[in-house]
Design a protein around this nucleic acid. Structure first.
Lengths: 201, 201, 201, 201
DNA sequence: GATGAATGAGTGTTCATTCAT
DNA sequence: GATGAATGAACACTCATTCAT
């Protein structure tokens, strides 16, 4: 907990200081929320628990986020942005197509391993029709983007029916991630990665 | 209410008559609940909605099921039993291994197409840590069974590392089903099935 | 459970037979209800439990009693009538006053020992303002009667302030019964009886 | 709402201010609940009635008490603590035994008169097997304590069978209080007190 | 007389959200 | 910016009572 109070005699905080404080608070809220959403599910996670875990008061949460759902949206957005980095870098890099797919797969598996919480949450949301709906716009945009990039890639790789391959490729990856989410360390993630890569070598 | 036997004595219903009534009520409750759980999610589906959809009173639901969660359990159990039929018939049938896997895959895809609600629900539950926990026992038992049957099958088919193949096979199937659940009729389910079967021919 | 059904071919029951059946049912209902009211409290005893314990259906109970509260009234009435017997016999018997009080005390203690359920119930009701109100008329009538009989008795026994003595006497008895209700067999009931009698010898 | 310190900073309430608010709320809830439990009975008193009477919302009650039963426990505990004061002071005071019993009796009768609600509630609970059970631990502890103190006292006073006397003494007191609870102002409480004291002088 | 499926008003409890400070 | 007391709509569940058979 950063030293925030007990500055009765101090001069008022500057704009910058305030911004820093805001960012810190928002981050710790989002971190706490992400962990708990992933661990206990969206509906079962209570605002008060998040606030407690984040070390702030219930009310403050509403200074930064419009409500529970908006908080979720912010997290989902973060998750997606974070995922983009490696993925896009791979797909848009300047190497031969076969390299690209390898890079992309490697990046994704790495990402998954180091951000289990994000992925758990995203997977879960994919199946919660109620919550899902309010995230649909976010997800759809990304989905479009990725699918198009992949189609292009498989075309370059010489697939006659690139769309078909995209569907299949996507299914394998999501299936693997799904199982990994459920079994965690008991899952042979690297072995699966190799099997995936084998198909494209 | 097709026929009301009008007996002067007004004797109470027979045990059999009551059993029929009970089964009808339970079925309509489970059907309504399944549909709404799948469509709106477990937490967002309210008991009163289910009762309304089933055409009964709130209270009656509690004559047949101990509560919301027990109702869910009953549905999940039904879903699993229903799935078993085709799957086990294929795996335990008396045909060459390669035929078996084909039969099993065909059966599963058929099952999925005709029971989207069940599968949507099961998929969703797989990602809801809170609800999931209370279903764990039900799921685990099945999982064990299927995995063992599959390992055996892949062994017969000559795979050097049958377990690895089971994981991979399972991931593909689950990935496909996952996407199908989300996209429904827009998903090229049959095409994906062919791609799966190709691998084992 | 008396053989009640399976008489398809039998001639209709006579008025008398019906009356017997009615009495049996009412008695078994009241017995079951008394026991459970005493054991678990009025509010915590459910109609369905009573019906089960009495070996009848929920609905039948309403053929005999207007509802839960009316059932309670019927039981309370029984309890009072039963208590009257020994008590009145003693007070109205043709023996010297000092004998009378002894007889009455003896009778009451006997009664208590053999009808713990009745007394537990009555005691409890005395303190449940909600339930109590609907029984008030029943209780008041008896109370009046007993108090008057006792005043008369203590007068005969030569007490200068018979009313005062009635209050005191009543308090002792009720206090003892109260403790007995709570401690049951662990309570030195006979010893207490002797202490009471001592005062009036 | 006597005074609202209007500080520009709108800083949150201090720990102490909050504590005061909390105590006030808890007290008004307990007071309302005590009155209504005593007047209408535990089961017949609804949470919403208590909240209304206390001038708060339903929900707030749950900020302070885990539920209806815990609220009852808190009240019972208060009642007992309050009762202890005079009673223990008398029994543990440094006067001759005969004085002690007089002091204790006086204290108890005073206490009863000024805390009718508490006593009504406690008496009622003594007869409600369902509610009683959850309070048993609270009651038992006190009971032990008092009985032992009394036994000691009667021993000092020279009674050959002090335990017997404790039972009798307790029965008389409880019987009197019981009647007082029921008849309230119509009961000759002081007269009864004198009769009790007479026995020990 | 007897049954038990069905009802639905009523209740305790939860929790996202607000707002005075 | 920060707090946490307070709100109240919403919900799961209970159970006395009804009524078709």
């Amino acid at each position: 907990m950063i030293e925030r109070s007990f500055n009765k005699k101090m001069s008022p905080r500057s704009k910058e200081q305030n911004e820093v404080i805001r960012q810190q608070s928002m981050t710790s809220i989002k971190e706490a929320a992400l962990e708990m959403f992933a661990k206990y599910g969206y509906h079962s996670t209570k605002i008060s628990q998040i606030a407690k875990e984040a070390g702030i008061s219930n009310g403050l949460l509403y200074n930064y986020f419009g409500g529970k759902e908006e908080l979720l949206r912010a997290i989902v957005k973060d998750a997606m942005d974070q995922n983009d980095a490696g993925w896009l870098m791979a797909l848009q890099s300047d190497v031969p197509p076969k390299e690209k797919i390898t890079l992309a797969v490697e990046a994704t598996f790495e990402n998954i391993k180091s951000n289990v919480h994000y992925w758990k949450l995203l997977s879960a949301l994919a199946f919660q029709p109620d919550v899902q709906k309010s995230m649909e716009d976010l997800v759809m945009a990304k989905k479009e983007l990725y699918i198009n990039l992949l189609i292009e890639l498989f075309q370059e790789m010489g697939y006659a029916e690139p769309e078909r391959e995209v569907f299949y490729f996507g299914a394998i990856l999501d299936g693997i991630f799904l199982h990994y989410m459920n079994m965690q360390d008991a899952y042979p993630l690297d072995m699966m990665k190799d099997m995936v890569l084998q198909r494209y070598r």
